[in-house]
């Protein structure tokens, strides 16, 4: 398994407050890595620092090359970010929004049509493709953007990174699972997928690997079974829980103790 993103002593400070303590971590291709932690633990900070959205010290390598030395048009082909929400208010059609993902690509109109058709179907928004984007519900918008970032990665080849910043926060039960299934599918096809998630059970069900953060520190790193122990979760979240095996599948189930 190859390393997609490697951070070296990456840290973020605002004033005298260190939001992220120096963190060195290697994120693999072909895995869905979930960043967990209570509010303010530094999950989004780590995600944003990895892509240069925040002023950070330390070093980030993307596919073995320092993040800063990538040309931005080139990097955009390999690294896509699904935002928490988008402020798009202009009346693009859904299909046009998905086509915006093709900006860094070099494809013919015909190839693009194929790619867009495929991704519209994958995120289950084909039936909405002629609708104006601003009229959609929050969950539909989220899926449209998922189709957009998948389009962006259409020419990523072996080197794809997909970062999801709280992709399930605005979604209902079915769409939470659909979104994470799609994320998992991308990982299975070789992408390095990193997601910030709040729901511990969603993380337990879908993550290949969990990074648990607490007040800017990386406190645990491993499979859901390794990371999600009763003692550790209670210590980090300050709330008692019970961990049990899921009755029908092999992942932990967390309930309030």
């Amino acid at each position: 398994m190859s390393i997609a993103i490697q951070t070296h002593q990456l840290s973020v400070s605002i004033g005298s407050k260190q939001l992220l303590k120096p963190t060195s971590v290697a994120l693999q291709s072909g895995q869905l890595t979930v960043l967990l932690g209570p509010n303010g633990a530094g999950k989004s900070t780590l995600l944003k620092a990895m892509i240069g959205e925040l002023r950070a010290s330390g070093k980030v390598e993307v596919f073995g090359q320092t993040q800063k030395s990538w040309r931005s048009e080139r990097l955009a082909r390999h690294l896509a970010v699904l935002p928490q929400s988008s402020e798009l208010t202009f009346p693009f059609s859904v299909r046009e929004v998905v086509e915006l993902g093709a900006l860094p690509l070099s494809v013919s109109k015909l190839q693009l049509d194929d790619i867009v058709d495929k991704n519209l179907a994958l995120t289950d928004v084909s039936h909405l493709q002629l609708r104006p984007y601003p009229m959609l519900s929050g969950g539909e918008k989220q899926r449209v953007h998922f189709a957009r970032v998948l389009t962006q990665l259409a020419q990523a080849g072996e080197q794809a990174i997909l970062l999801l910043d709280e992709p399930t926060s605005a979604l209902d039960l079915a769409h939470q699972h659909n979104t994470l299934k799609l994320a998992k599918l991308q990982a299975e096809q070789g992408a390095c997928v990193v997601a910030v998630i709040h729901d511990l059970n969603l993380a337990a069900q879908y993550a290949d690997r969990i990074l648990l953060l607490e007040r800017g520190n990386l406190v645990a790193d491993g499979s859901p079974w390794e990371v999600l122990s009763e003692r550790r979760i209670e210590a980090v979240y300050g709330y008692p829980i019970t961990v049990m095996p899921h009755p029908r599948a092999d992942y932990p189930l967390l309930v309030s103790a």
Binding site: I51, E53, S72, E73, R74, L75, A76, R77, L79, A80, V81, P83, S86, E87, L88, F90, F92, V97, L100, G101, L103, P104, Q152
Partner: peptide, 20 residues
């Protein structure tokens, strides 16, 4: 024109699409 389209998504989104 294409960069301006991307900018309508938001500044961060446009940056992630490779727009300066």
């Amino acid at each position: 024109a294409k960069s301006l389209n991307a900018l309508l998504l938001g500044e961060a989104e446009a940056r992630h699409l490779g727009v300066n």
